[in-house]
Design a protein around this nucleic acid. Structure first.
Length: 457
DNA sequence: TCTACGAACT
């Protein structure tokens, strides 16, 4: 009995250290406990597996699995779920699936948590069909779906562009007696806003108000972000004050949302003030907050100071990510230092990020805006991956230079690749072709637009 | 002891 109690106490200590990312201290607790005669159990090891997967990497989590085997402790479904989550967070789908095989071979049947995590992994990788298959499996199998199953599904549908399906699923769940949680509302409000379904988002927000639940800091931050994005500043600031009145303390998310919105609209003094408030509150800056500061310096053209800031980021033990580099590249272009931007872009290429697409797009867009369309086209030719934003920047600027035929060819290439192009962009090209007397090209483009519309509808 | 939401770059 005494031993059991001390194992529980040890586990509470280990979990507390793991929670705040102090893995060495957690390990030290275990060493001390063993010295005093208390052996770690499966819960102790599971806590470590989860922490190593979250804060280090999957292999570190896996090495704890080996340690538990050496200690003759058998992993259970929670152990594997932590590993699956680790694989999922690093987008390692094949490792996720291997772990499923491994646990089944070991006689540990996956539970609804395992499947929820797999579903989330498919959604994160942009594979909604596979995620939906997992969802259907959960619903029709003996595993009963839980609220996380539905929340994960709703979130995944929204993030993968299936907003209408998410809304339909939500209504159908409600008809079947599902009581939405605050998290469910937050997921839907953000998802609907992101897809531009502002009216539907407002309806859900109203339903949240009537549900007896109170919005939290997360809800306020989301609503605020979309007010700013829709250029409804006064409304956004109102939400900001309402959040304060309701007694919510602002966290890094709220401060970052507001200061970045101010910066984007040229209200730099207010942006800095907001950022300072965050620092005064003692909120530790993470890489996202630093990136917002980098952007503010770039907007002001304080590029020398940006380099100091990059140094400060590394000094703080953080790592510059693709946003940091992209923001700097954009800032260099904005300041007219195209050579510097190109140099940094090449440097970024060597850093091994998943994608440098946005950085390339910044280069293309800023070159176009500065009137160097041919240089932008040269960069465009070297790009392996392009998206509709790449094409749209070029098309608009070619039109500005009255190079409608070239714009039309690019627009068609874009449509042929199945990318969506905004209506105003299409109209500019068609109108330009007509005005220049290029009627047959205009007809060809219009028919391409119709076919593309038919395919996407 | 394990899963799901909000902040940054065109």
């Amino acid at each position: 009995m005494v031993c059991k109690l001390s194992t529980r106490l040890m586990n509470i200590c280990v979990a507390s250290f793991c929670k705040v990312q102090q893995l060495e201290k957690a390990e030290a607790v275990i060493v001390d406990a063993i010295r005093l005669g208390t052996l770690p159990d499966v819960v102790t090891y599971n806590t470590l597996v989860a922490a190593y997967c979250r804060f280090v990497d999957l292999d570190a989590g896996y090495s704890v699995l080996h340690r538990m085997r050496e200690a003759d402790i058998y992993p259970n479904v929670v152990t594997y779920n932590s590993l699956i989550a680790g694989a999922s967070n690093h987008c390692l789908l094949s490792r996720c699936l291997d772990l499923f095989d491994e646990m089944i071979k070991m006689g540990i049947p996956p539970d609804v948590w395992s499947y929820n995590t797999l579903m989330h992994c498919f959604f994160r990788l942009g594979k909604p069909e596979e995620a939906n298959k997992v969802f259907q499996d959960i619903v029709t199998s003996k595993l009963s779906p839980c609220s996380t199953t539905f929340n994960t599904m709703l979130n995944g549908l929204c993030k993968n562009g299936y907003t209408a399906n998410a809304l339909m699923l939500f209504r159908s769940l409600q008809r079947h007696g599902f009581i939405p949680q605050l998290l469910t509302y937050n997921i839907l409000i953000d998802g609907l806003c992101k897809s531009g379904w502002l009216r539907a988002a407002r309806t859900i927000l109203k339903e949240l108000g009537k549900s007896g639940l109170s919005p939290n800091a997360n809800t306020y931050t989301t609503v605020m972000k979309y007010c700013f994005r829709a250029r409804q500043f006064e409304e956004g600031i109102e939400v900001f004050h309402e959040m304060k009145d309701k007694g919510y303390t602002y966290d890094a998310f709220a401060y970052c949302t507001v200061s970045s919105a101010f910066a984007k609209t040229g209200r730099l003094e207010e942006a800095y003030r907001c950022f300072e408030l965050m620092v005064e509150k003692g909120i530790e800056l993470d890489i996202v907050s630093y990136n917002i500061l980098v952007n503010m310096y770039c907007i002001e053209g304080r590029l020398e100071e940006v380099y100091d800031l990059l140094y400060e980021i590394e000094e703080a033990g953080l790592k510059c990510d693709q946003y940091t580099h992209t923001t700097l590249i954009d800032g260099l272009c904005r300041a007219g230092n195209i050579d510097g931007a190109l140099k940094h872009l090449k440097y970024m290429d060597t850093l091994g990020f998943d994608s440098n697409l946005v950085a390339y797009n910044c280069m293309v867009d800023r070159l176009c805006k500065a009137g160097y369309t041919n240089n932008a086209l040269k960069i465009f030719e070297t790009m392996e991956v392009k998206d509709c934003i790449t094409y749209t920047s070029l098309v608009h600027n070619l039109c500005k230079e009255r190079r409608f035929l070239h714009a039309s060819k690019l627009l068609q290439a874009c449509l042929n690749r199945g990318m969506k192009v905004r209506r105003p962009t299409q109209r500019v090209v068609v109108k330009g072709l007509h005005r220049s007397g290029l009627y047959s090209e205009a007809r060809m483009l219009q028919s391409k637009i119709r076919v593309a519309k038919f395919c996407t509808d």
